[in-house]
Design a binder for these strands. Structure first.
Length: 283
DNA sequence: ATGGGGGCCTGCCGGC
DNA sequence: TGCCGGCAGGCCCCCA
């Protein structure tokens, strides 16, 4: 589901109701998601104050006042739903629990944050805040695409001599963190690069041009509140609307959006995942 | 060392 | 109405 813009949208929505708040109660309804939960997770969270909600790539990180950090990954279908009344102006009942509500956080301000994830590709873990960067899942990540570490020299250097398709390279979180299937397809369309083209066979100028393109695509998607496909909701339950701006993703058979181009969007499968592109505009 | 594919899960949709 | 195949935003891990 969620790529960087969706995760950032969720983080932005959760921050006002979770930052600075004590988790008064944590309910854990099963032993694991993709991996077992850390030992005593409910007890280690309950009573802790969330000092800050951060994002690294597609991970949400909650720094606690106990020197630990909670890591949350939404996988493909994970959602964080907020209910209750954080401002305390009204009395709100919480909605009835739903299938796949795996973890529930009750906050001191009355808000309830429910992690719901039908496919359970998501994850949670706890680690020492001081060494969070060294966590197995975070240590391997490449630079943040919206940060200074993601530069033209970084990308051209990382792709130099790589024989893999550019699509696979941009999905590789070690090369750049946070991109997923949607935004790679969109960036390659804007960059005029065929998704199956081998990275080593793309002129460095064209690789370099992808850097501002990737930043633009992600930035526009964040501004739009992410892309709502099957089950993505912002933390407040609202739908993002960037999906209306897709040039190619999910548009197989529809006309290419390049002015004057008469081609239709094609779909191919690369390492098991759909790539959408225009065969005339992308080479 | 690199890169490709399997597998993890559930839900939904279209076709028959 | 029901069943089946295909598909879905991610990513670890194994194998060649």
């Amino acid at each position: 589901m969620p790529e960087l813009p969706e995760v950032e949208t969720v983080r932005t929505g959760l921050a006002p109701v979770m930052e600075g708040q004590v988790i008064t109660r944590t309910l854990v309804n099963r032993p694991d998601l993709r991996w077992p939960f850390p030992d005593n997770m409910a007890a280690r969270l309950s009573g802790a104050r969330i000092e800050r909600l951060r994002r690294r790539s597609k991970y949400i990180l909650a720094d606690l006042d106990r020197g630990e950090t909670l890591l949350i990954h939404l996988g493909m279908s994970g959602r964080m739903l907020v209910s209750g009344d954080p401002l305390g102006r009204f009395v709100h009942d919480h909605p009835a629990p739903e299938k796949h509500d795996h973890v529930v956080f009750d906050m001191e301000n009355g808000a309830r944050v429910t992690f719901n994830d039908p496919r359970r590709f998501g994850a949670m873990d706890l680690m020492a805040t001081a060494t969070a960067d060294m966590h197995k899942l975070l240590a391997v990540l490449g630079p943040e695409p919206l940060g200074n570490g993601f530069s033209e020299s970084h990308l051209t250097g990382a792709l130099r001599g790589r024989s893999m398709p550019i699509k696979s390279a941009l999905l590789d979180q070690k090369i750049v963190a946070g991109l997923g299937n949607i935004y790679v397809c969109e960036a390659l369309f804007r960059g005029g690069i065929h998704p199956a083209r081998r990275a080593s066979r793309i002129a460095e100028k064209r690789i370099a041009a992808l850097v501002p393109i990737i930043r633009d695509v992600l930035g526009e998607a964040i501004t739009a509140g992410g892309s709502s496909l099957r089950d993505f909701r912002q933390a407040d339950g609202e739908l993002g609307y960037f999906q209306h701006s897709f040039d190619v993703y999910g548009r197989e058979g529809a006309p290419c959006k390049t002015p004057g181009c008469s081609e239709t969007v094609r779909r191919i499968v690369q390492s098991g995942r759909s790539s959408f592109y225009c065969r005339r505009c992308q080479r």
